[in-house]
Amino acid sequence: MKITIKYFGILAETSGKKEEILEVDKGMSAAELKGRQIKTYQIPEEESVQLAVNQNLNTEVELKEGDEVAFLPPFAGG
């Protein structure tokens, strides 16, 4: 199944990408995807990275076809 991944801030810089569409196995969890992308792009400080699945920070979900997963570095608003 296809999912869209978006990278922001320092993560877009590290991965060299703002967005990519990936083919992943059905039933993959958000946590598994996080681990995989962190390894692929050798993203440091893994614990500081939050994922949002379809703009929702609750990532205790199984990914579905067409999902948008955002890789978010620490927030710095204000």
């Binding site: 922001f8 801030g9 320092i10 500081s48 949002a52 955002a70 978010l72 570095p73 620490p74 927030f75 710095a76 608003g77 204000g78």
Partner: peptide
Amino acid sequence: VPIFGKEIFEDETHQWKVN
């Protein structure tokens, strides 16, 4: 709020801000 800040120094190098 997912907002990110790139701190740009006077010599054009940068680092990423963390609240």
